[in-house]
């Protein structure tokens, strides 16, 4: 087994573009779930409308990529309003049901033959992000350290993706520690207390849903742009649960929870993947027990096991505060 390869694989994933995209989407979800207490099970739906907002604007309608970004953001606001207006006055479960359904309906709708003229149906859309790569200021070369190497194109994607993560983590830190954030955090704990003090809980929940959803749509755009491709089946409802997994791992309701959570989640996943692969080829694991084709499933089982251990030994997540969590029990 070559541990250097295994560890460098883990590192590459942990700081890779996908980890950045998931960190960004999880920052939005952290506002919903971690701070406001909204059960949004359809963050992937916000990512989808963002991604297709960009892709369809350019590929189908011939607009500029930057107009596409605005359209993607606009779509996410509309989606948030459609989901929130009827449900946010009701009990928390209603938003949960509406969002989980919306995520799947959107995917089926965007891949349907009816929507194909705009969305490309099951084939998706490709090559719409040239404008993004045209403004890459990084000179053409190979960059990297140790066994981790990047082209200037990769580096540009990483720079922008992690830049967005840093920007929104910062914005979120400011907002959560403001009087607005105080109201939001109070709503998570007891809506009625907040109402009795003259705050419109409904309006605050709506703001949270819209803003967190818009951040999710930016993550979707980033995912589409770095692949130069969108496909409806990328936006599976299960992705939202990966977001929850990494959020709980890092610590929900914590500033760095989604960022560290995403880095670790992808690093660990890749670590298991690489380690299992090497163990099989080195003959440590017999191919009767686990074949190379089953690695994908096996690593998720290991992540699940890891999460269970985390819940047992550190239920508040890596960054969570145990003291704060114990207050729930009282």
């Amino acid at each position: 087994m070559d541990w250097e390869v295994i560890l460098s694989d883990a590192l590459r994933s942990g700081i890779g573009p996908i980890a950045a995209v998931y960190a960004l989407a999880a920052i939005g979800l952290n506002l919903h779930f971690g701070y406001t207490g909204l059960l949004n099970f359809g963050q992937i739906g916000f990512m989808l409308v963002g991604a297709y907002g960009v892709a369809a604007s350019v590929s189908t309608f011939g607009l500029s990529l930057w107009v596409g970004v605005l359209i993607g953001l606009g779509s996410s606001v509309i989606l948030a309003l459609l989901l929130g207006l009827p449900t946010l006055r009701l009990r928390a479960e209603y938003l949960a049901i509406a969002t989980i359904a919306a995520g799947e309906i959107l995917r089926l709708f965007y891949r349907s033959s009816w929507a194909e003229p705009v969305t490309g149906g099951v084939f998706g859309l490709q090559q719409f992000a040239d404008e993004f790569f045209d403004i890459n200021p990084i000179p053409r070369d190979q960059y990297g350290f140790w066994l981790v190497n990047y082209s200037s194109r990769d580096l540009w994607v990483l720079l922008v993706a992690w830049g967005l993560v840093a920007l929104f983590a910062g914005v979120m830190a400011l907002m959560v520690h403001s009087p607005w954030g105080r109201v939001i955090r109070s709503i998570r704990e007891d809506e009625d207390a907040v109402r009795s003090l003259g705050k419109s809980v409904y309006a605050y929940k709506m703001q949270s849903l819209v803003f967190g959803g818009a951040i999710g749509s930016l993550a979707g755009m980033m995912l589409a742009i770095q692949n130069q491709s969108v496909n409806p089946d990328t936006y599976n409802p299960v992705e939202t649960f990966f977001l929850y997994t990494l959020l709980v791992l890092g610590g929900a309701g914590r500033m760095l929870g989604p960022v560290i959570g995403s880095i670790l989640f992808w690093a660990i996943l890749s670590f298991f993947d690489s380690a299992l692969r090497q163990a099989i080829s080195a003959g440590y694991i017999s191919s009767d027990v686990l074949s190379a084709a089953e690695i994908g499933a096996a690593r998720f089982a290991l992540v699940g096991l890891g999460l269970m251990l985390l819940m047992i030994f550190r239920p508040q997540g890596i960054f969570g505060s145990r003291r704060e969590m114990l207050l729930d029990v009282r």
Partner: peptide, 23 residues
């Protein structure tokens, strides 16, 4: 709505207290 009542100047407390534990 409850928040409008409070804004009008009529504020109530609860029999089962509603203090916000994590604040």
């Amino acid at each position: 709505a409850a928040h409008r009542v409070a804004r009008r100047g009529l504020v109530r407390t609860f029999q089962l207290t509603k203090t916000l534990s994590k604040l």
